[in-house]
């Protein structure tokens, strides 16, 4: 306060009057008045602190509840796009790849082609081990080319495999009943369109396998 009075920006400063005025500045509010005001401030402050208490504790409880729930429930369902990839038929999968390299895949027998296409590539050596001997020789350069040109798809399938963590796709491939169960679950969960596509692919793969009644209506 005194600093501002000394500022040269006020040419109206009259020092004798100001000095004299300072001698009049003696009075103070009574101690009782001070006590009342400080007590009021203290009451208001504690009321204000309490006002935060309830929302804060509620937020903490909700956060704790959500965290526990997330830990207890099963892993979240896969996205529809991923689900489709999982259930995609081996033939169609292979077709999409062979469109890029038709002259090699055309010579392969259907069952041999189907198996490696359902499997999610982990590394090129693993693929070679699982493929038939004759296939391995040609498949290795194919795989390299696929990995180069189709990295995103491979990555998605890897993620899908990690996310699923239930069954290996080879198991699905060789077990029509399991495949149907998964299709059924998919339809039940509301992904009817994806389920129908998967069912169509299933029918192509296993044309003679009897379908359960509840899935018959979804056959296209």
């Amino acid at each position: 306060m005194s600093d501002q009075r000394k500022q040269p920006e006020t040419p109206l400063d009259d020092h004798p009057i100001q000095a004299l005025y300072q001698t009049t500045r003696q009075e103070l509010p009574s101690a009782e008045l001070d006590r009342q005001i400080l007590a009021l401030a203290s009451r208001e402050a504690s009321r204000r602190r309490r006002r935060w208490l309830f929302p804060l504790s509620s937020a903490a409880v909700i956060l704790l509840g959500v965290t526990l729930t997330l830990q207890l429930v099963e892993p979240p369902e896969l996205a529809p796009e991923s689900e489709e990839l999982l259930l995609e038929a081996p033939d169609s999968n292979q077709r999409s790849r062979t469109s890029e390299i038709p002259h090699k895949s055309m010579s392969m027998p259907a069952p041999s082609v189907a198996k490696p296409s359902m499997e999610f590539p982990q590394d090129s050596s693993a693929k070679t081990r699982q493929a038939p001997a004759g296939f391995a020789h040609d498949a290795e350069p194919q795989n390299r080319q696929i990995q180069q040109t189709d990295r995103q798809e491979v990555r998605r399938k890897e993620l899908l495999q990690l996310g699923r963590q239930k069954k290996d796709t080879r198991e699905i491939d060789s077990d029509p009943q399991l495949w149907l169960e998964i299709i059924g679950q998919q339809i039940e969960s509301g992904k009817v369109e994806a389920g129908q596509r998967a069912l169509t692919e299933f029918r192509k793969r296993y044309p003679d396998y009897p379908l359960p009644e509840h899935l018959l209506q979804y056959v296209e």
Binding site: A41, S42, A45, R49
Partner: peptide, 10 residues
Amino acid sequence: YCKGDTQAFE
């Protein structure tokens, strides 16, 4: 003080 610090008000 607005956050509840009484000492700040004093």
